[in-house]
């Protein structure tokens, strides 16, 4: 299952960023498909990107004095959240895949259990994605996308590195801000080698939003309580520090289905509630 998921993540990641001309010429795609957000954290200034980053788009709307309230972008994120929840993180986000691949490098691994540090991503969402883009403005009334500007390592990796490598003028303009962002990227990538998805667990505001939908999304991780023996195999395999035998709807669960594969009595399943309802009707 892990390999199948990795292959799926790889194919969707490439498809989302397959305007290869951009990588050759150091330019970005300027077509109308950019009006639509792609599900994961994928920078719209990545030379290959066909679509827009949901978090970048949200801040762009908050930045404009004339917009302020987002209905279109919030609606798109909400639609993905209500249907898939954090399945997006487990299956569709290229930056999640990059962290996972780095974790496969042989090294000593640090396993961090459930920790309050997980709430940091909600603070990042509230302060850098919503409040500061809404409230901090220059004298022309225009704000900045503060999460993109100060933190986002996905933007640095997917957009800054290729564009600066291919553009002398952009390279010349890079200053302390770029050094800061590049340092954060290096720290994130290095941490990903020893820790499973550190950015997703503690920092990503998009993962925070999708996590809020995990309890109500159509796609669900289901536990059959009567079959579960509480052997702990699922807890042991889960690298997001979730205990699916107690809380399969946890906001931290990325629906990777590793626990489903490892459960010896097949008590867990990933799917749509409608199928589960039918099953219960028959069995009950």
């Amino acid at each position: 299952m892990t390999l199948r998921r990795t292959a799926f993540q790889g194919v969707t990641g490439i498809l989302q960023n397959s305007w290869f001309t951009g990588f050759l010429r150091g330019r970005i795609w300027r077509g109308s498909s950019k009006a639509v957000c792609i599900p994961g954290l994928n920078c719209y200034s990545c030379p290959g990107a066909w679509g827009s980053c949901p978090i970048g788009s949200l801040q762009a709307v908050f930045n404009r004095a004339s917009d302020r309230i987002s209905m279109y972008v919030a609606g798109l994120i909400g639609l993905l959240g209500i249907v898939l929840g954090r399945l997006v993180c487990g299956w569709l986000c290229p930056f999640g895949l990059i962290q996972e691949l780095l974790y496969r490098i042989r090294s000593r691994k640090v396993r961090i259990g459930p920790t309050r540090l997980r709430f940091l991503k909600y603070a990042v969402l509230a302060v850098l994605v919503i409040l500061m883009p809404l409230l901090v403005r220059d004298r022309f009334g225009v704000g900045d996308p503060w999460f993109c500007k100060l933190v986002c390592p996905a933007g640095t990796l997917e957009a800054a590195l290729p564009l600066l490598a291919l553009n002398a003028s952009l390279r010349g303009a890079a200053g302390w801000l770029f050094v800061w962002k590049a340092s954060l990227l290096v720290a994130t990538l290095a941490a990903s080698v020893v820790m499973y998805r550190p950015f997703c667990r503690f920092v990503c505001p998009l993962g925070a939003i999708y996590g809020l939908f995990n309890r109500v999304s159509f796609v669900q991780l289901t536990l059959n309580e009567d079959t579960c023996t509480h052997c702990g195999a699922c807890v042991a395999v889960c690298r997001m520090a979730v205990d699916p035998s107690h809380d399969p709807a946890s906001a931290e669960c990325i629906r990777c289905s590793d626990c489903v594969a490892v459960c010896p009595v097949h008590a867990l399943s990933l799917g749509l509630p409608s199928a589960q309802r039918k099953q219960r009707t028959v069995i009950d």
Binding site: I28, W29, R30, G31, S32, K34, A35, C37, C43, Y44, S45, G51, S52, C53, G56, S57, A60, V61, R64, D67, S70, M71, Y72, V73, D144, P145, C148, K149, C152, G155, T156, A159, A160, L163, L164, L170, A173, A174, G175, L177, F178, V179, W180, K181, A182
Partner: peptide
Amino acid sequence: EVRTVITKAINVCLQCIGIG
């Protein structure tokens, strides 16, 4: 709102690449 999104997305985001 679509115009805001597309205008931002079809131009290189200087903040994203660390020079804005």
